[in-house]
Simulated scan of single mutants.
Amino acid sequence: MMEFVYTEKEIQTVAKKLIQEYPSKIIAFFAPMGAGKTTLIKALVKELGGVDEVSSPTFGLVNEYHDREGMPIAYHFDFYRLNDEMEALDFGVEDYFSSDAYIFMEWPEKIPSLLPDNCIHLKIDILEDTTRKITEI
């Protein structure tokens, strides 16, 4: 099982390792508020060659990020404000899962029965103010 302990200065290295180590492009991040999910996703999008500004899609549910040619390379979901899984289905989340782009999800515990079988489940723990630990669960 994979585990990384890192600080924000090392986050780009962790992003690179995650992309290299995991064959699936669908990653669910389980972590408490303030654990750095968006910061890590920002590093992942940068590692993939994304040119868009990365921010949490709290109100829009999903942000789309592109490479220099304008091709979508990642979709970033934040399910925090969902009331139930039907809202995700109505939004068309399953269509995104079948795309060829990376899928990064914050608060995936809001849609447990919708997560695809090939989804990587990663937990981020806060160890200290600037130190985090990622564990595959």
Rank of each mutant, 00 (worst) to 15 (best):
P57W: 03
D78A: 04
S113C: 09
S55G: 09
K110L: 05
D129P: 15
R132H: 00
T135F: 08
A35S: 13
F97Q: 11
L114G: 10
D52S: 06
F4Y: 13
D78M: 02
A43H: 01
V51R: 13
G34A: 03
E136S: 10
F104E: 06
E136V: 12
I103E: 08
L122Y: 07
I41R: 10
N63W: 03
A101W: 02
S24T: 08
K37H: 05
P57D: 00
D90V: 08
S56N: 05
L115I: 12
F91V: 13
T58L: 07
V62C: 13
A15L: 02
A31W: 00
Q20R: 15
F77S: 02
A74G: 01
T38M: 11
E94L: 13
A74K: 03
D100V: 04
E85A: 11
L40F: 02
I19C: 11
Y6C: 11
I26V: 15
I73L: 02
A28C: 12
T130V: 10
I19Y: 04
Y102F: 12
K46P: 04
G92R: 05
A101I: 05
H66G: 10
I120E: 14
Y96I: 08
Y75Q: 06
P112C: 07
F30K: 12
D129H: 14
D129I: 05
A31T: 02
R132T: 00
S56F: 03
L61V: 11
M71D: 12
V93Q: 08
I124A: 08
D129K: 15
E128I: 05
G36V: 05
L18N: 08
L89Y: 10
F79C: 07
N83D: 15
L127D: 04
S99W: 12
W107G: 09
L122E: 02
V51K: 13
P108S: 06
K16C: 08
L114D: 07
E47M: 04
Y65Q: 09
D84L: 12
H121Y: 13
F104T: 07
E69D: 15
E69P: 10
K42T: 11
T39A: 15
K42F: 00
S98V: 15
I126P: 12
W107N: 06
L82K: 06
I111F: 02
T130M: 11
D95L: 05
A43Q: 00
I41S: 10
I124S: 10
I11H: 01
T58F: 00
H121M: 15
L61G: 09
Y80I: 06
E136H: 15
P23S: 09
V51M: 10
V93D: 07
G70D: 07
A28M: 06
T7L: 11
V51P: 14
D90I: 08
T7D: 14
E53L: 15
S55V: 05
M71L: 05
I27L: 10
T58Y: 01
D125Y: 10
T130E: 14
M86C: 00
E87S: 06
E21Q: 05
Y65M: 07
F77N: 04
P112E: 04
A88S: 07
F97A: 15
D100F: 02
P23Q: 14
A15V: 01
Y6P: 11
K17D: 09
